[in-house]
Every structure is written in structure tokens, then in C-alpha cells.
């Protein structure tokens, strides 16, 4: 059996490299205090990059993401509130920039659609169960009873060996 060590070493190296790159991207921005930096990081993580749409502004390497990070950075430095910064971007790019879109009529299907589907499914299940358990189910006819007995006894080839 092979020693796991080279893999562990490689992983450690990768982790080290990854931490270096995080360090590098942080170094571009200097803040007056840690609270500002925390706000900047939180904001850029909940805003979406429009170019590579499955990445946040913080993660994206697209040119536009860089510009928008710079924009957010300057607004944070100027002491603008989170809401002001979000409004600024939404006014230009729409709700699409938000990973957490607001609850408003245009977004209702997004927010409540899954629950509607769930409710429909629950209703369908309830109806099916109720129908299944109905006590006033008509008794079997004589013909049906005989067929059931045959099936239970295994002498019936109703299901057929069609192999």
C-alpha cells in the first residue's frame, strides 16, 4: 500500500497557495477599521457578478467585478450604509445583483412557488390516502373474491409468465 504522505503534502501546499491568494486580494483594499472591512466583505459576498453569474462580486475575477468591488469599496470608505450601496447597484443592474432578492410581487413566484408546489403535493397525497382508507368501499363481488383467492393461492396465471 502506498504511503498517503505525498497527498497530504500536496494538500497542505494547495491550502497554503489558496491562503496566499486570499491574502493578495485583501491587500488591494485598505480600510480605516476592521468594521469597514467586515462590511465590505459581507457586501461583496452577497452581491452577484453579472458576467460570471454564479460567482459573487468577492469571488469573481471578471473585469466588471473588479470595477464594482472598487465602487463598493469607495462607498464603504465614504461611510455609505449597506442599504445605500445595495440601492446604488440595484438601480443600475436590477434585483439580479442580489443573491437574496427582495420579497415583492415580481419575485413572489421565486419566494413562494416552492411552497405552492409543496402544498399541491400535500393535498394530492391527502386525497389519495383518504380515498385509499375510505370505509365505505364497496365489498368485492363474488367474481372478484374468487379471483383474489386464486391469486393468493398462486394457481392463477392472470399475471402471466410472459418471459
Amino acid at each position: 500500500m502506498r504511503s498517503p504522505r505525498p497527498i497530504v503534502g500536496l494538500l497542505a501546499l494547495l491550502a497554503l497557495l489558496a491562503s496566499l491568494s486570499v491574502q493578495a486580494s485583501l491587500d488591494l483594499y485598505r480600510f480605516d477599521n476592521p468594521a469597514q472591512e467586515a462590511r465590505f466583505r459581507a457586501l461583496t459576498h452577497k452581491l452577484r457578478c453579472l458576467v460570471c453569474q454564479n460567482e459573487s462580486l468577492a469571488d469573481s475575477d471578471a473585469d466588471l467585478a473588479h470595477d464594482l468591488r472598487q465602487e463598493v469599496y469607495e462607498m464603504v470608505r465614504k461611510g455609505q450604509s449597506d442599504q445605500q450601496i445595495i440601492d446604488y447597484l440595484v438601480a443600475r443592474y436590477g434585483d439580479f445583483v442580489l443573491y437574496d432578492p427582495p420579497v415583492k410581487p415580481a419575485n413572489y413566484p421565486l419566494w413562494f412557488g416552492p411552497f405552492v408546489v409543496l402544498a399541491i403535493a400535500a393535498l394530492a397525497a391527502a386525497i389519495a390516502i383518504r380515498r385509499h382508507n375510505r370505509p365505505d368501499r364497496p365489498p368485492l363481488t363474488e367474481e372478484e373474491r374468487r379471483r383474489a383467492e386464486r391469486l393468493l393461492a398462486g394457481t392463477d396465471n392472470d399475471e402471466g409468465d410472459k418471459s
Binding site: 458576467v51 470595477d67 464594482l68 443600475r92 443592474y93 436590477g94
Partner: peptide, 13 residues
């Protein structure tokens, strides 16, 4: 030059 006006117009590509 720096894309500032582009941002105001919501340009992303």
C-alpha cells in the same frame, strides 16, 4: 476610460 459611466448605464458586457 475607467468604465464609470458604463456602470451608471448598467453595462456588464
Amino acid at each position: 476610460a475607467n468604465g464609470r459611466v458604463g456602470i451608471d448605464w448598467g453595462v456588464y458586457g
